[in-house]
Design a protein around this nucleic acid. Sequence first.
DNA 1: CCGCCGGTCAACCGATCGGCTGATCGCCGC
DNA 2: GCGGCGATCAGCCGATCGGTTGACCGGCGG
Lengths: 212, 212
Amino acid sequence: MSSTIRVLIVDDHPVVRDGLRGVLSGAPDLVVVGEAGDGAEALARLAAADDPVDVVLMDLRMPVMGGVEAIRELRRSGSAPRVLVLTTFDTDRDVLPAIEAGATGYLLKDTPRDELLRAVRAAYRGEAVLSPAVAGRLMGQVRTPTEEALSSRELEVLQLVAAGATNREAARRLFISEATIKTHLLHIYAKLEVRDRASAVSAAYRRGLLTT
Amino acid sequence: MSSTIRVLIVDDHPVVRDGLRGVLSGAPDLVVVGEAGDGAEALARLAAADDPVDVVLMDLRMPVMGGVEAIRELRRSGSAPRVLVLTTFDTDRDVLPAIEAGATGYLLKDTPRDELLRAVRAAYRGEAVLSPAVAGRLMGQVRTPTEEALSSRELEVLQLVAAGATNREAARRLFISEATIKTHLLHIYAKLEVRDRASAVSAAYRRGLLTT
DNA sequence: CCGCCGGTCAACCGATCGGCTGATCGCCGC
DNA sequence: GCGGCGATCAGCCGATCGGTTGACCGGCGG
């Protein structure tokens, strides 16, 4: 019958893939048509036009090619499958890019089995499904639209500062003036609501702007 | 037969529990005798003396009671089962306490299925099994014995600095002199191999000394 | 018993930072 | 076409930091 939902599992952990396969295979209306260990494998699998996929269960942090890039590629190529993100992390740095890239839903891995099954069916219908923690983050974004969100240039500066660069060194490395570095830093302080570089670095780590 | 290894799965993610159950059930010499969603549940299950467990597959970061405390409790109560840590994280902050607490092995969740099975059997025999990344961290510890390991006082200072305190503020908060703060910071810089507070904060986050 | 280590404190110096004001330029959207 | 924003740059100031040297004390272990 045409009501069978065809699912592709993308996760770099074999154990997790097995777990998902097990959970999904318990539902008569779902069938796992493939697995992939990273974004590139997933794209390759999805390119096989003779074997369509309805819903992609996608991890985010993977080697070779992460989930966000994979989703972006999918959208760019105009492919059809819904993408349901399933990951451990609920930081802004993970959630926002994934949703911007075009994920249909975003679940955390502590989601109970039955909720996961419902989410796959909902994603198949094009409905948005979010874990409560993720929903909260999104609301926070909407409520404070202009907050945080460092510009890419500011992030470069902050990375150098976190690496121990003085203003002078950062300026040299970015081929700009020391005054500009100072300006960027002032903006960064304002956005992160701090007053010095040390706490700016700390705030950035907490918000997932800097990678651990 | 007595050669059947009895395994308890402890992980807060239902999907992961399913995956592990699936992998283990594929081996004729292994049997999953229970599951738990956090350390407290695991201890309760292990307290049932009429139903022994040989190997515990233990996640670390869990709600209610984490894996490290659970392992420590187990050892304190003189219980027998081997504990094989199976987690996503390989930072010093996770690895070292777990091994100190008495874990028999430490695997990351990207471990292939067959290696996981071999590891369970090895743990049952009391052999140490480490994922390559974890082994590397341990070696690093041994090679540089005096490295890092901030004293508790130094950590207090660093936390304040990360929160945006100036030396003067930190001094006031800890009821000590500003000069002492400076001395602590110099020691911190030496241990973390940096030259300013911003990069000290960064290094601390990367090593898991400061919590995200 | 003596040495080492962690914690405490002091004084001094140059280097750097944070705060402020003000300015130019290019791009995007209304 | 105007306004806003990001990025660029300048100069000035006081405050703070980083580096150094030297010192005292208490506990722990050889």
